[in-house]
């Protein structure tokens, strides 16, 4: 059974149609790049899968079931913007996650944070943007999930932090779990992707194995993307 299946998914805000007849399946055990320019529907699609928005028409199945309590249990989601209360300390946030998710691995989170040599009594507000991003990623990757959805995890961080984020993703996703990474920073990330999904203007333009696409087009995913979506 596919991990995620979107069937004729449409989403409109008022008269504006954001997603048009999206059909796609997310297999297990893969890292998948959801790639598209700004404002093409990436975040909307992710929010639909996370039940933060409701579908206008169509259906999304997670493990063959409709979205609901069960799907929330198995999806670990890193939103584009933080939802954490920045007056909390790292210790408090860890407790918060522990209370919220029964698949949260506190030990793992503590270990990963220790590797960052962070003072866990520090308030989030006192930390740099890059550090906050790292802490959030650690929290999200410390859940034993079937699907990790990371919305723009590389936005606005320096190259060294990018490397840290990519490494953390690579080392910490469960065997058999999948990771969806939405981004427009393709060059930085394409090395770790099994599959890419190109989305433009609310429609899925292409879904392919990364190395197959490279062979076929004889160029990098970044170049292919730039050629396809030239402004």
């Amino acid at each position: 059974m596919d991990l995620v299946k979107c069937i004729n998914v449409n989403k409109s805000f008022g008269n504006k149609q954001i997603l048009k007849n999206v059909n796609l399946t997310i297999p297990r055990g893969k890292i998948i790049g959801l790639l598209g320019k700004n404002g093409t529907g990436k975040t909307t699609l992710i929010k639909l899968i996370n039940d933060l928005l409701t579908i206008s028409s169509g259906e999304i199945l997670i493990n063959g079931e409709k979205i609901g309590i069960n799907s929330k249990k198995i999806i670990s989601y890193l939103p584009e913007r933080t939802y954490l209360d920045k007056s909390m300390t790292i210790d408090q946030v860890i407790e918060y996650f522990q209370d919220f998710y029964d698949n949260f691995d506190t030990k793992k989170a503590r270990k990963l944070l220790k590797d960052l040599s962070l003072d866990t009594t520090l308030k989030l507000a006192k930390m740099s943007k890059g550090m906050q991003e790292k802490v959030q990623l650690v929290l999200v990757m410390s859940r034993k999930a079937d699907l990790y959805i990371l919305d723009e995890p590389l936005g606005g961080v320096d190259p060294a932090t990018r490397d840290y984020i990519l490494d953390t993703i690579l080392t910490n996703f469960n065997d058999g779990a999948s990771v969806i990474i939405s981004t427009h920073l393709i060059a930085d990330i394409e090395r770790i992707l099994d599959e890419v999904i190109f989305i433009d203007n609310g429609q899925i333009i292409l879904q392919s194995d990364t190395d197959l696409l490279r062979t076929k087009e004889n160029s990098s995913i970044d170049d292919i993307f730039r050629r396809m979506f030239k402004c």
Partner: peptide, 14 residues
């Protein structure tokens, strides 16, 4: 190996 070379384990497997 995947970790050391910073690639996806599936790619290393292949």
């Amino acid at each position: 190996l995947a970790l050391q070379t910073k690639v996806n384990p599936n790619t290393m497997q292949k």
